[in-house]
Design a protein around this nucleic acid. Structure first.
Lengths: 194, 194
DNA sequence: TGGAAGTTAGTTAATATATACTAACTTTGT
DNA sequence: ACAAAGTTAGTATATATTAACTAACTTCCA
């Protein structure tokens, strides 16, 4: 359902965003990088918003879907959170272009459709994490002295800021290795003390 | 050192950013809102970057300076964190326009000067919080089973995401009240269990 | 089976609009 | 009277998008 050229457009778009920020994603830059003219882009996507929506879809596939899948699996809440973190770090290490998309809320402010879409994605992420934590609380794996939704905010907020720092340091440290260390802290924090 | 008109330009800029995102901050919008013409803006600021730098300065005054001041005071680490959170929630509730600035990293990507400035601010915040936590660990007020810098990331990340959600819900809930509740969670998480 | 018709993916050229910024002149307040 | 702060009218550049056209294919049917 996605042609090769469409895939190429999205892939190059991610590169541009990652290199120069969202401001670097212009039809001109896009066409130039691919090696076709600007109007040719419109043979493959109706307009720029459709391209941005496709980018958000890549992001969704790499986060929400992975999260939701995790919720249904067996295993302790801690194991699930561990899986999610490791997956997330692995995906971002493989595709650092996505980092800019994670923090794209402010950029899409002018397009209601994009705003709504990203809001929905963030809600879904929060619900998935909250759900895992609540189940963990019932099973006495996760501390119950604090609300699951507050814990979820701290977990996701911590993950986001951790990744942001990696980006701001030009991806200079090993996200997977340092991330594993950070994950240990998260696990200690959410675990029930015995 | 700042004229009335300069203050007005910054204040209106913050309004515009808060309403329509950074993309809404154009010289045209700015002039229109103030009720003067575009060239008149340049009587007060050399160029747009100077305006953005002044905005970052407002942000810095409301975060880093407040944080640093807190570090030097007496009181437990928990009390200091509590102060910082409450101050932060109060400032943002009074000046919701600042929320957009907190998350402006992605927007300033094209301007190296602005990027550097915001990176420095984020580092300073992290150092202030880390410092408070480390002292708290030495005094056995803060849990020592996890690193202070990891804790700092979770605290700031949580705070940021909490505020982001407030913004995405159009400032619909009471930040100060809900924030106080969130703060309780943060306090429990960083405290030494007795 | 071979030509008419249609499709795909590209081109060049142009358009409308937005944006930051400037030059030259005018108003205004002390 | 003069400097600060304003105006009008303009520039250069960027940006998304459209119009008109073309070369190279695929499909369809007499």
């Amino acid at each position: 359902m996605q042609t090769d050229r469409q895939k190429e457009i999205i892939s190059v778009s991610l590169d541009l965003i990652s290199e120069k920020g969202i401001q670097g994603l212009t039809i001109k830059n896009l066409a130039q990088r691919i090696g076709i003219t600007e109007p040719a882009i419109y043979r493959h996507y109706e307009n720029k918003i459709q391209i941005l929506l496709a980018i958000l879809e890549v992001f969704r596939k790499n986060t929400v879907l992975v999260f939701d899948q995790e919720v249904g699996l067996k295993g302790t809440a801690i194991e699930k959170i561990e899986h999610i973190f490791k997956n997330q770090f692995r995906i971002l290490a493989e595709t650092p272009q996505l980092v800019a998309v994670i923090f794209s809320e402010e950029i899409f402010r002018n397009e209601p459709l994009l705003m709504e879409r990203i809001g929905a994605i963030m809600d879904q992420i929060n619900q998935a994490i909250s759900g895992i934590l609540k189940e963990g609380q019932e099973r006495k794996e996760i501390r119950s002295d604090v609300g699951a939704s507050h814990l979820a905010i701290m977990i996701m907020g911590g993950l986001r800021l951790f990744v942001k720092r990696w980006q701001m340091k030009d991806f200079a440290f090993d996200l997977i290795a340092e991330g594993a260390s950070f994950l240990q802290t998260v696990k200690k924090i959410i675990s029930k003390t015995q």
